[in-house]
Design a protein around this nucleic acid. Structure first.
Lengths: 296, 296
DNA sequence: GTCTTTGATATCCTTTAGATATCATTCAGG
DNA sequence: CCTGAATGATATCTAAAGGATATCAAAGAC
């Protein structure tokens, strides 16, 4: 017994007429008669009484009609549900992101598009620093990570979403805060620094260290903190200077001034990171949309 | 999508191993891979992730596994239910019978056998006189009628279950009640008669009329009654004589004596009547068993 | 009685499922 | 790091099942 058989039987039971049912099914009448006959043989009893040019259901046929409809409905429902899920039109999408990412227009814009295109996907956003996104990505607890550059295990793959210059964060009342002109890293390194602690897990710290090390500079850290907002606050209070991606310019705080960096390699990136293989369809769609947003 | 596809998918999802699943299904591995692939294409998404010699379910696959099991279970249930009903192992059987029938051992014996063989059939016995069984038989409200000979419409068919002699029912105190020897219809016809009214609907009345008319006898009816028990009671009270099938001998009432009839054609029959075509399987089985009981 | 309707039957063809042989990938173990 | 076993994918062929066409048989309708 196959679903086709059930579809055929339901058609005949509804039309009570083999030829009409066959036309409805888009097949010719003889195979339909044969299929019904085979079904009756398999079940071991008549489902239809073919009498004097009239077709009627037996008691068994009545019962089977109900049951067959039920089975077909369930099968169709299963197909629909799984199809939607498999096509990434439902289900969920779990995205990790760092603090700085919502400051750029790219992510909000992408999320808006994605929501419009896939309104039935349950979108779960998790604010996590770069390091803390890696384990969930590996374990399948996160589908996509949006993070600063980091050393990734080979199971993860990434591409650059945003490339932005670094800017100096200085106190407006301080010596360096007197101007808006570009500043070199060497100049900046003369000042006491407020920066992330290694425990903060951000990829920016690595970049920071590399940049200064390449120039033989060792800035004096006066305070290690956990988050960029704290950095900016402490700069505002005059504790020292800092170096952050340009998107933090969106954070306006009294007494804080952002100055461009003249060094050409003082740039930072935002990565989209994902498991190298076996992306969920939802994640594939998200990546598709984010790529469109970058291109457009 | 067919049930076979679902069975295949469930096997793979349970084994998480194509070759083992194929072995379990009794097919070889390549067609199984192809069927799963085709299923995934139809649904528009992956159900299984084939990674490094390990097979795992996707989210869509997990969902589809549940759904597929459900569909298969329902289909099997439908098949089982309908099969039982269609084979006459469940459902119901409605039998009409006249008053005299339970007096013979045939019907109780047949019912016992039938119940043993088909314990799940809902057996409904309706005590109805011969005439009143015809309409329900025609309209499908009765599957089988057990009745006295009657004129049947062509849609009904009958065969003889029991052939039994008629006996005179006489009052023990009366002149005819003095002996047990055979009596002729002519002798009996000299006495006042107690018999069925035409409204009683019994086939016996027709036979009665024919028997006497053939001999040019016109017995004097002193009382028309509705049922055989009333006839016997009235004979007991001395109102007259009567003529009944031998099975009524089982009814022992004081002052009533049964005497054989010497006329060879003074016999009656019990018929099993049924719709000529389209017997339900339950009815077919009952007829089969009743025939065995007659033969054995 | 003849014609039309309608399901069943017979035969052939097309499609699809399944078998066999082989390949590609991966991972275990030396 | 290389070799070999394990395992799913691919290619090709065969067998079976589904479906089409032609025709028949039974039963009402006129």
């Amino acid at each position: 017994m196959e679903l086709r058989t059930l579809r055929y039987f339901v058609a005949v039971a509804e039309e009570l007429h083999f030829s009409r049912a066959a036309a409805r099914l888009g097949i010719s009448q003889p195979p339909l008669s044969q299929q019904i006959k085979a079904l009756e043989e398999e079940l071991g009893g008549r489902l239809l009484v073919r009498t004097n040019r009239r077709v009627a259901l037996t008691a068994a046929g009545e019962l089977f009609l109900d049951e067959a409809r039920e089975v077909l409905a369930r099968a169709e429902r299963a197909s629909r549900l799984v199809s939607r899920l498999g096509r990434g039109e439902s289900g969920q999408l779990r995205i990790g992101f760092t603090t700085s990412v919502p400051l750029t227009p790219l992510l909000p814009r992408t999320l808006t598009h994605y929501r419009q295109r896939y309104p039935d996907v349950d979108l779960r956003m998790h604010e996590l620093n770069s390091q803390r996104q890696i384990a969930p990505l590996l374990e399948g607890d996160l589908d996509i990570g949006i993070m600063r550059p980091a050393t990734l295990p080979p199971e993860l793959s990434a591409f650059t979403l945003i490339r932005e210059p670094l800017v100096a964060v200085v106190n407006a009342q301080s010596e360096l805060g007197a101007s808006d002109t570009p500043l070199s890293l060497a100049e900046l390194a003369t000042q006491p620094f407020v920066y992330f602690s290694p425990a903060a897990g951000t990829g920016l710290l690595d970049q920071f260290n590399v940049l200064f090390a390449q120039r033989g500079l060792t800035p004096r850290l006066v305070q290690e903190v956990g988050g960029p907002n704290t950095i900016i606050s402490l700069v505002a209070s005059g504790l020292g200077v800092s170096l952050l991606p340009e998107s933090f310019r969106h954070i306006h705080i009294d007494n804080v001034r952002y100055r461009p960096i003249s060094d050409a390699d003082a740039r930072s990136e935002v990565w989209l990171t994902h498991p190298r293989h076996h992306l969920t369809p939802q994640a594939q769609h998200f990546i598709q949309i984010v790529r469109e947003a970058i291109a457009g």
